[in-house]
Design a protein around this nucleic acid. Structure first.
Lengths: 212, 212
DNA sequence: CAAGCATGGATAGTTCCGCTATCCAACGAC
DNA sequence: GTCGTTGGATAGCGGAACTATCCATGCTTG
């Protein structure tokens, strides 16, 4: 398949595909002559994944490159590669300030992890932990309840989600498939989850404050 | 308080505050002379909210303006204003394409809403519904399991979250406080939830594929 | 086999967004 | 009165994600 066909089948313009090739998000096609290259189904699939990460997952192009590179790094073991998406992702600047609210947030989160029985979080710190603390600090600063008691139900539900997610990952037969699934499901279920929560808000609000 | 003090207490530069004033995200201060204005605690609070929406909630400035305007629109009733954040928000372009995957996604989502007993979703369509369908379509296109059976646990957990969220909203004593809380908690608990899910993935992955 | 259009690599340009820097006239404390 | 401060207006900047143009090659068709 030539670049033009790859473009037609993916719905991505040739100019954008060239851009992704430049940025290293896509393997170059097999050069068949000095000025022509051949692309296969795996390029199409990869392109769809990249597009989904960027458009649906709102991931910056540079981050998508790192995530994909980590997922393909065969020097890491299975567990590490499964965590590739998690580690490369969030980019909400960690707790930059060191004010009172950040301190409170830090303590609330530590207590939460303790109560959930999640250990080893500080050993290989996931950027998600920084994002969590920053977000809780923002809530604290606005005076909203965000102590361990309020966070705990969220933590328990997150744990349930993780079980469902990992089940879905394990449905994939091959190791490489599991890695890709971990990346794709982690990132692409996020808008699903947030949308469902928003819709549930509408439902629950209607139930309580019932319009008509 | 003068602009400089507002800046110092919020940690936002005066240039940025002026920008927010221009963009209508902040009420102008009370003009005390031709060239000076006085700001109060409510300006500080509002500024912190705006910052949180933009930095933590990753909301575009223009969207933050709409959300805040809707939340303050006293011509709407309580239920409507509580939904202001939900309706003004997501901006993942709705299902633009109309391919096979989108059709499958549409049917899966409809069946899901049916099984959850969520009705009236199509009457005043929340943009979250469009985001949901687009995201599911992307998963379908990549060949991942995303049928009603897979989505249902997410829906149920979202419903549980909504109950907890609305409980937190109802803790606020005043109507205006509830509106602001609905906006702030809807948006600012999103990174909290996603971070917890990522951390839970690490835990669950360690449990299953356990490195050491 | 020549004409002519398609291919794909390189490079520069465009658009949008979220600030940021510069001016400048009016204030106000010393 | 002097001089630093305030705050409104305007223009500029830097990053991100594309997008448009150029051009040498090469396949294709009459």
């Amino acid at each position: 398949m030539r670049l033009a066909e790859l473009s037609a089948r993916s719905g991505v313009s040739t100019a954008t595909i060239k851009y992704y090739l430049r940025e290293g998000l896509l393997q170059p096609g097999h050069r068949v002559t000095a000025t022509q290259a051949e692309y296969g189904e795996e390029h199409l699939r990869r392109l769809r994944l990249v597009r989904a990460l960027i458009q649906i997952g709102k991931m910056p192009v540079a981050v998508a490159r790192e995530v994909i590179a980590a997922a393909e790094d065969t020097s890491l073991d299975h567990h590490m590669r499964l965590g590739a998406a998690t580690r490369a992702l969030p980019r909400v600047p960690g707790p930059a300030e060191d004010d009172e609210a950040t301190g409170i947030a830090h303590r609330s989160v530590d207590a939460l992890l303790e109560q959930l029985g999640w250990h080893g979080m500080h050993d290989e710190p996931s950027p998600a932990l920084g994002t969590l603390i920053t977000s809780v600090a923002a809530l604290v600063r606005l005076g909203y309840p965000c102590d361990t008691a309020h966070l705990l139900p969220y933590g328990r539900l997150a744990a349930e989600l993780a079980v469902a997610d990992l089940d879905a990952v394990e449905e994939q037969p091959t190791a490489a498939g599991q890695i890709e699934a971990a990346v794709a499901l982690t990132v692409l279920y996020e808008p699903v989850l947030l949308s469902l929560r928003r819709l549930a808000h509408v439902q629950e609000s209607a139930r309580r404050f019932g319009g008509r």
